[in-house]
Amino acid sequence: MVGPSSSHTAGPARIGLMAGQLMKNRIKNVTIVFDPQGSFAAVNKDQWSDRGFVAGLLGWGPDNRELNRALEEAAKQGISIELKIALLDEKHPNAVLLMLEDETGEIIILKAISLGGGMVQITEVKSFPVSISGDFFELLIFTHNLSKETLKKLQIEIGEMLSGFEISSVVMNGEVGLINIKTSNEVDHQVLCVINNIEGITGTRLVSPVLPVLSKRD
């Protein structure tokens, strides 16, 4: 690990690594929000938290020796970084909100927490609750007007293409929804193509593990 703190440096780098994978195109603007009552607001510069989050978004892990240069590198690549202090509804002391915008104008907002010892959890993506800790391959499937028949078809298709997977959650918010699938195995691009062609599926995102040891699904 590079930097002074596993909670405030390594954790942010891993959150950034996962967050960056949610973007399909080059990131252009980043807003990082800390709660005024949380620890990041007080220590983010001294503990390199700001650099940790940005390093992860650049694809740099917590062991990257260049981590301390992350802000300069982001500026060099034309990525705008804004740090803000604002109230968050997540009351964990190491909570953060990231708003990412890519060069096409797509925006993804996510919330995460650093749990200590370099362990992290993404708790929300696009207003959908999730639990992503970096110890699985995480397949996020976004839906619109998904029928029970289509969900059953999706389960069958995935079962034929993936082993050792679990449908972690199916969350509906009106007409839109999010299905979170966890697997210990790499997900082939062909799997994503098949899923994206199913009626009612509006998009997919694949987040690869960031922890050195993966969990297992039987």
Rank of each mutant, 00 (worst) to 15 (best):
M1T: 13
G3A: 10
S5T: 08
S5M: 05
S6G: 13
H8S: 07
A10V: 12
R14K: 14
A19E: 04
G20C: 00
L22H: 00
K28H: 15
N29C: 09
T31I: 12
I32L: 03
V33F: 03
Q37S: 13
F40A: 05
F40S: 00
A42Y: 14
A42C: 13
S49P: 04
R51P: 00
G52T: 01
A55H: 00
G56E: 00
L57V: 00
L58R: 03
L58C: 07
G61L: 03
N64W: 02
N68I: 10
N68M: 10
R69E: 11
A75Y: 10
K76C: 09
Q77Y: 07
I79F: 05
I79Q: 03
I79A: 04
I85M: 03
L87I: 13
L88P: 01
D89G: 11
E90N: 15
H92V: 03
H92F: 14
P93S: 07
N94K: 08
A95K: 02
L97V: 04
L97K: 10
L98M: 13
L100K: 02
E106S: 09
I108H: 04
I108L: 08
K111Q: 14
I113M: 08
S114T: 07
S114L: 05
G118I: 03
G118D: 03
V120A: 06
I122L: 12
T123L: 12
E124Q: 13
V125E: 04
I132C: 07
I132E: 00
S133K: 12
S133W: 05
G134I: 05
G134D: 06
D135Q: 11
F136G: 06
F136I: 05
F137T: 06
L140Y: 04
L140C: 08
N145A: 11
N145L: 12
N145R: 10
E149S: 13
E149M: 10
T150N: 13
L151H: 07
L154K: 07
E157Y: 13
S163M: 10
I167H: 05
I167C: 01
I167E: 04
I167L: 08
V170M: 07
V170E: 11
V171Y: 10
V171A: 08
M172T: 11
N173W: 07
V176E: 14
G177H: 02
G177R: 06
L178P: 06
T183E: 06
T183C: 13
S184L: 02
N185P: 10
N185H: 12
E186S: 14
E186P: 09
V187S: 00
D188P: 11
D188H: 15
H189P: 08
Q190F: 15
L192K: 09
C193T: 14
V194F: 12
I198Q: 11
T202Y: 11
R205H: 13
R205C: 12
P209N: 15
P209F: 14
P212T: 09
V213A: 12
K216V: 11
K216R: 14
D218L: 12
